[in-house]
Design a protein around this nucleic acid. Sequence first.
DNA 1: TAAAAAGTGTTATATTATAACAAACGTTAT
DNA 2: ATAACGTTTGTTATAATATAACACTTTTTA
Lengths: 132, 132
Amino acid sequence: MAQAQALSRNQQIVLNIIEKAKGPLKAYSILFNVQKKGINAPQQIYRALDKLIEMGKIHKIESKNAFVACRSSDCEISKATAFSICESCETVDEISDTKLSKYLSGFNHKKGMKFKRFNLEFFGICKKCKKD
Amino acid sequence: MAQAQALSRNQQIVLNIIEKAKGPLKAYSILFNVQKKGINAPQQIYRALDKLIEMGKIHKIESKNAFVACRSSDCEISKATAFSICESCETVDEISDTKLSKYLSGFNHKKGMKFKRFNLEFFGICKKCKKD
DNA sequence: TAAAAAGTGTTATATTATAACAAACGTTAT
DNA sequence: ATAACGTTTGTTATAATATAACACTTTTTA
Ligand SMILES: [Zn+2]
Ligand SMILES: [Zn+2]
Ligand SMILES: [Zn+2]
Ligand SMILES: [Zn+2]
């Protein structure tokens, strides 16, 4: 069993903020939130984000350039991610659906390319927003 | 049958460049390529790109901030897109697989959100790059 | 033909992300 | 312990991506 990787100081600070957040956070919004902790430059944020993504602790929502904490425990490496995104309130949920994940992981392209990783983003209007 | 929408001058110029390209193009690379045609500002590019996306003529590859022409004729509105992306040579192919598309269009989130649209990006190493 | 809608040109600015370099820190191997 | 190595940090600067705002023109619709 691979030893769970320890987080460095900056990585831990950034992860804490993302985990506490209700929704996806942008890099610069994270930056503004940690200036009191002595982190002053974008680089410091982006470096932490890169490592956290590698470790599977967070994911990037590509369509929003924003970052969310991983909630699904089994994506230790971010190689099969799926999200549901509300176009009205911007809520993002990580979808962990075994069938979906298996279906896509097993998907083979006609042109013979073997996939290592995928990212899927669904868009719609969430239940809560539909009521309004 | 809905009348195919005519393109404005700038939209046509931008679309031509993207269609001629072998791979995804970035907005500013498009801009540099059309300065001889009198287009000088990012806004003009982004406005054209936005409309072309709405019409389904092009798609944005979110993980690369780049744009490709639609090759699959049946996505008149870009509501169900899937791409295969080589992490080595950066080649991008639009996947038009009816089964995949149906499977995903019919996918329903546990939380009851009805999806209007999705975008799927697969990553791997293409056949050609594997040989090297 | 007047009003409305879509498109254009332009300047300025906001937002997102990386380059490059020197110093500090944490491991491991003599 | 200490040298050597890789990783993390701090910092300044800059690159790349994208939008705001405003005045004007063209096209469509009524
Ligand atoms: Zn996850
Ligand atoms: Zn919502
Ligand atoms: Zn298409
Ligand atoms: Zn390749």
